[in-house]
Each structure stands twice: as structure tokens, then as C-alpha cells.
Computed example of a mutant assay.
Amino acid sequence: MSRTLAAAPSEPVVVPERVCLLAGDDDVTPVWRNVLGGLTFRLSAADGAQRYVKWVPAGTPELDLDAEAARLAWAGRYTPVPRVLDRGDDDEGGWLLTAGLPGRSAVDPHWLARPETAARAIGAGLRAMHGALPADGCPFSWGVADRVARLSPDARARVGDVPAVDRLVVCHGDPCAPNTLLDDDGRWTAHVDLDALGVADRWADLAVASYSLEWNYGDGYEPAFFEGYGIAPDAGRIAFYRRLWDLG
């Protein structure tokens, strides 16, 4: 993954037929696109209820909706994440339909204008998630050994020595700022996009979540993030896990 993996669509989007069928009479709004062709749509009902559809083109194995559905079902027993309503495939692609959640993305314009509050809430939300999900009972891994083993020989040499584990937790796996939802008072409400969730050192999440603040808000907001999480930065672990993120 990289900092350019996904963005809100800036050009017209053709809505797949399956998304139209799932929407019924709901309004359909494209809200996210990734570089592999995956799309996320918001389905808005007349009564204000919202659902979300992730859709990926057929033959895109890098985007595993079954993996995300399984992780959401497991994590939803312990912490606020999207509830899976439907999962399927057809000749055009695959889809994952989930219920909407309270709050708005930490990169909503409302929070782009209040970055320090958002950064602190992202840290607090990640700490809460790490505390709520039981690492001993988690069937999924985001372990550093497996991630390093998937690198090319050149990248493996460049990433450097793996640091000692600080604390194993169930990591989000893609803890960038857009994947935390906040209420209007600046408190985290839920996490989304958990297709890589799994057990790993907490610094695998901390390094990348804090890294993403610069991409989304600019410089200067890491102190608020680490204050929200309640931990002092560990420069060595941060540097390693950021290199692993960039090289992977």
C-alpha cells in the first residue's frame, strides 16, 4: 500500500449495474476510488439511512472482499466497525454491502479545517481499538515476518532489521486518517476499511497512522496524535514501519 492508494473520485463514475440493484430507490454517490479500480458508493435512503457498497472489478485478486467481510464480522463483536449486509460476485465484479455508521471521515472538509482535533481523535480511536480487540483470540495476522517475506530481495535489504516487538495487538492494518470516523464533537466513533486487520506490533499501526497526518493535514500534528493515543514516539520503530509501508 502507499499514500496514493485511494482518493475521492474527481471525475464522473459509471455506477456498476450491481450497485444500482443494491441501491434500489436510494441515491447513489461515489465516495472513494483506488488505483486498482475498486470503488466505494454511498447509498442514501429518503429517511436518511445510509449504506455503503465496495465494488471491485472481476479479476482483481489484490482486493479481497471475502477477507474484509470475515474481519468485519470478527471485529464487530468488540469494537464499532461496519456491519456486513451482503457479499457477492458476478461477471462484472464483487461487492461488499455494509450498514452506515455514525460520524464522518477524519478527512471530511469539516475535519480538514480542524486538523489538531482530528489527529488527537485518531490517536484515541486507535488506542481504543487496540485495547478492545483480543490479540489472543484473533484469527488474522499482519505480522512483520510475513510482510517482509513478500518484499523483493532489494526491498528486503532496504527495509533494515526488524525491531523487537513492543506490544502485540490486533492492528487495523490500514490506519490512515480517512479510516477513522469522528462525531461532530471530535470524538472517534468507528473504524472502516479493515481488509488487512491482524495481529502485529502496535507500532505497525502507530507509525503509519501518524505518517498519514502529513499527507492529509500537513506538518505539525503528530504530537496531538501521540497525545491522543497516550504514548511517546519511538523513532526507531516509526522509521522501520514507515519504510516497510512504503516498500510494501
Rank of each mutant, 00 (worst) to 15 (best):
M1P: 14
M1C: 00
S2H: 15
A7P: 13
A8V: 11
E11A: 15
V13K: 02
V14D: 12
P16A: 06
E17P: 02
V19R: 12
L21N: 09
L22N: 04
D26M: 13
P30Y: 08
N34F: 12
L39E: 05
L39G: 07
T40G: 10
G48R: 06
G48I: 07
R51Q: 08
W55S: 09
E62P: 08
E62W: 14
D64R: 10
L65M: 08
A67W: 14
A73E: 13
W74Y: 04
A75T: 03
Y78M: 09
T79I: 12
P80F: 03
P80T: 07
V81G: 01
D89E: 14
G93Q: 01
T98I: 09
G100R: 08
S105T: 11
V107M: 02
P109R: 01
R114K: 06
T117V: 08
A124W: 01
G125W: 09
M129L: 15
D136W: 10
G137L: 11
F140N: 00
A149S: 01
L151Y: 05
R156C: 01
A157P: 06
P163F: 05
A164L: 12
V165Y: 07
D166C: 11
R167V: 11
C171A: 14
P175R: 07
C176I: 14
L182H: 00
L182Q: 06
D184T: 15
D184Q: 14
D185F: 11
R187H: 13
R187L: 13
D193F: 03
D195W: 10
D201H: 11
D201W: 13
A209R: 05
Y211K: 11
S212L: 05
S212E: 05
E214F: 09
W215P: 11
D219A: 15
Y221V: 13
E222D: 09
A224H: 09
F225Y: 13
F226N: 03
G230N: 10
A232P: 05
A232R: 04
A232G: 07
D234S: 08
G236K: 06
F240D: 02
F240A: 03
Y241S: 00
R242G: 01
R243K: 08
L244I: 05
L244G: 06
